[in-house]
Design a protein around this nucleic acid. Sequence first.
RNA 1: GUGGGCGUGGCGAAGCGGUCAACGCACCGGAUUGUGGCUCCGGCACUCGUGGGUUCGAAUCCCAUCGCUCACCCCA
Length: 424
Amino acid sequence: MSEFAKPRGTADILPEQAAEWRAIEDAARQLFETYHYREIRTPIFEHTEVFQRGVGDTTDIVQKEMYTFLDRGERSLTLRPEGTAGVVRAFVEEKLYGEMNTQKFYYLGPMFRYEKPQAGRYRQFHQYGVEVIGSSDPRVDAEVIGLGDHLLRQMGVKSFSLLLNSVGCPVCRARHREQLLAYLQPVRSELCKDCQSRFDKNPLRILDCKIDRDHPVVASAPKITDALCEDCARQFSQVQTYLDEMGISYEIDKTMVRGLDYYTQTAFEFVEGSIGAVSTILAGGRYNGLIQMLGGPDLPGIGFAGGVERLILARAAHGATQVGQDRVDVFVLALGEIATKPAARLLHELRSVGIKADSDYSGRKVKAQLKVADRLGARYVVLLGEDEVAAGQVAVRNLATREQVTIEQSELVSYLSEQVSLRF
RNA sequence: GUGGGCGUGGCGAAGCGGUCAACGCACCGGAUUGUGGCUCCGGCACUCGUGGGUUCGAAUCCCAUCGCUCACCCCA
């Protein structure tokens, strides 16, 4: 074991896996652009207050999961634990609201949370996500949800379910909170320890508690979904109408609450059963108060975020894993001291015209080098020995057909350009 | 933060108190002259995460510690 190990909860993405990562990132970007979302890149760290305000002081993320540090100027900074707060901060700071009424963004990148790692949960993990700011039209909710659905399908996740709920607005939420507290008060002492404290901080979460969920009183407690104000109820039903219209199936889950404080109205979660205990693969919701909370105008917003690591796990479970092929077009084989210089020159010439080429650097024998060429999946071997060097020629061997020709060194590039291009 | 499982060569994995720590894969070399994928032969852990203890003797038992992993809270 090495003396230096990567920090807990981080991962090295090795070349083989990097191919899949890149494929996912490329496909995600392309899909987002198809929906006319534009990429936005915000800093990986922000002033701590951005997350305290943006994510919410009562959330686990802020209370116990942030990577917070003081820089040399004594400023408190935090590695971003999620993407929305930073995007909204940028939106407000750069005054992007001046441009158009509705703006659509996407992002891709690492996030950091100080958690104990397990399957599908890491301290540095990666998310792709979208944010739509400036419209509260339920068509936008449906578009964002539909985009999540589309992305998962496109990525090869064949089965998953979509849970949908509405968590209301500050008006109906406050009203529901009163009802709920009154309702639960008599059984407060029967609740689990966590729910005792949720009682004051975030009673909505009690409904979602895995321990108390089965408690008869809790199970039949008033749901926010049933206590929505007129506006929220209409929003919720219209979102469903559009989803129906788009042929996207979902289940209403009245106990589903999103973990972040900023959510209002629409909340949704895509879950996949085979990736471990943490089955949420992509989730999001509407956050109508957030922009104003971060100092901007009173604009509505909605978005989602998905975990790349969880997507990769799900792809694996669905047999969609992609392995990178590591092939080279040409392998330059130099024999002996005398061949090294012309070989280096030819290797460089081949690469200059875009032919993927490699060579051996350890001065091994022909046999060993051919073995390497074979293993690299090379189509051609350019062989340079004493005879060839003396004659200004090279032997070019087609590894598949075993045919070998000897040509002038000056013709090599044009000869191979032609051969290699024939494959495409 | 809490609980379970596990830590043997690059990887997978046997051994679970007593000769030199199996084996497979990978890797390296060889099977006569400068020609590959198969086969055959050979090489590759003074050491079993780390530290301490028990014992005549420990990879094997005990304790601690670190790490990995799964699960809980919560979450992508």
